[in-house]
């Protein structure tokens, strides 16, 4: 009776609306977050992740209301990321009904923040989101290398993705949300080599993200990438595929899922 691999639809929320950027630029409106959350829940989503991409600080309250509404109706785990910089941001999201928060930029600028957050709220609710880009394909060096980027993939940090993932797990992250910036929005599938090295490097669960274009990509993330959970946005938002179809695809490839 093994643990099921999780399918996590991701909702990028801008000022209270679900959108999905392709390569973080061309943003299409996909609808009302509460309505979409309800649909995913009914289709069998194992968790939901909301990424707040709202630029202005004032509109962040909108996200709190979205989380409150969703948590009152949908009884599966909810993760909220985007703009989590202070312990008070975490408290606010947890009080609104989130189960976990995803910390990205704030972890890079101050790793101790992750430690403090895990100590205060418990590792079970601290997800560290890592945006990684390949900087060496290993063709010459024999050693592919990925680096951490922040600010939506625009700002390099010089940090090695594998070392960073290990450090974050040591600091108390309960889970790693790993996004390939090379693949995000391309629909060419996950960066499986990246997913595999990070998944093998840390003891905590790894969520693969970035690049899903078809259902078999999800299965590949689990089988070849070694991911504990797979996250996708656009393939679910526009009704191309349902979560139920995704689960059937995984099950057909002998992956344990919650049906």
């Amino acid at each position: 009776m093994p643990l099921a691999k999780r399918i996590i639809p991701c909702l990028d929320v801008d000022a209270g609306r679900v959108v999905k950027g392709v390569k973080f630029v061309d943003i299409r409106d996909a609808g009302d977050p509460v309505e979409i959350a309800r649909r995913y829940d009914a289709e069998g989503a194992d968790e939901l992740t909301f990424l707040d991409i709202t630029a202005s600080h004032e509109q962040r309250d909108t996200m709190v209301h979205v989380v409150e509404q969703v948590a009152g109706e949908v009884f599966i785990p909810l993760t909220v990321g985007g703009g989590i910089r202070e312990l008070s941001d975490i408290r606010r999201m947890l009080n609104a009904g989130a189960d976990k928060v995803a910390i990205n930029t704030a972890a890079v600028s101050n790793p101790e923040f992750v430690r403090a957050a895990a100590e205060r709220f418990g590792s079970q609710c601290i997800v560290v989101a890592i945006d990684a880009k390949q900087v060496d394909d290993g063709a010459q060096s024999g050693q592919p290398r990925w680096e951490i980027f922040t600010h939506g993939g625009r700002k390099p940090t010089g940090l090695d993705a594998i070392e960073w993932a290990r450090k974050m797990a040591d600091y108390g992250a309960g889970e790693i949300l790993l996004t390939s910036m090379d693949r995000d929005g391309t629909r060419n599938g996950f960066d499986l080599a990246l997913t595999r090295v990070v998944s093998d490097a840390v003891d905590v669960p790894v969520i693969a993200s970035g690049g899903v274009g078809k259902l078999d990509d999800l299965a590949d993330g689990v089988i070849a990438g070694g991911a504990d959970a797979v996250l996708a946005a656009s393939i679910f938002h526009f009704g191309e595929y349902s979560i139920a179809e995704a689960k059937r695809t995984l099950a057909a490839r002998a992956i344990e899922v919650r049906l």
Binding site: G174, G226, R258
Partner: peptide
């Protein structure tokens, strides 16, 4: 325990996170 692995040989992560069956 650290270093546990499942029936498929894959490492089992800690925390135990996700949907598991209850007998």
């Amino acid at each position: 325990a650290e270093g546990m692995s499942g029936a498929d040989g894959q490492a089992l992560k800690v925390p135990h996170m996700g949907w598991n069956q209850v007998r």
